[in-house]
């Protein structure tokens, strides 16, 4: 009884191993982010690009290993709500930056 219980919980809620893998990946990505900025090895634009990629990958690592997001059917509505929110926030941020940059340019404040 207890063995079947442990193995089933290992899949849906994460196991010690999956948490450790997620943690190690997160540490590596965080250290890389700090290193990219502190070593000044890339151009400013390149640094920002590298930071964005590292942050995106780390967010995905956290979603998978810590929040246990996945494609299983019981998570369908969680995923739909998530996709809606991400699209919403993307439109919000990109739209805001676009409009405000444009306004600033036309008002010659930069």
């Amino acid at each position: 009884m207890s063995t079947s219980h442990t193995s089933s919980s290992g899949e849906s809620h994460g196991s010690v191993a999956s948490y450790v893998i997620g943690f190690v990946l997160a540490v590596i990505l965080t250290v890389l982010s700090f290193a990219v900025v502190s070593t000044h090895s890339l151009s400013p634009t390149g640094t920002l690009g590298a930071l964005s990629v590292l942050a995106l990958v780390q967010v995905l690592v956290h979603l998978h290993y810590f929040l246990h997001m996945g494609g299983s059917s019981e998570q369908r509505w969680n995923n739909i709500a998530f996709v809606f929110t991400v699209s919403f926030v993307a439109i919000l941020i990109v739209g805001t930056v676009f409009i405000m940059t444009n306004t600033a340019a036309h008002m010659m404040s930069r």
């Binding site: 965080t30 900025v37 920002l48 942050a55 967010v59």
Partner: peptide
């Protein structure tokens, strides 16, 4: 658990775009 891990994800965005991006 969801709340705590969610806050960690928000912090990734904070240290990347607020702190590190300002220190480039």
């Amino acid at each position: 658990s969801l709340f705590w891990h969610f806050l960690d994800i928000v912090w990734i965005c904070v240290f990347t775009y607020v702190y590190l991006a300002s220190m480039i």
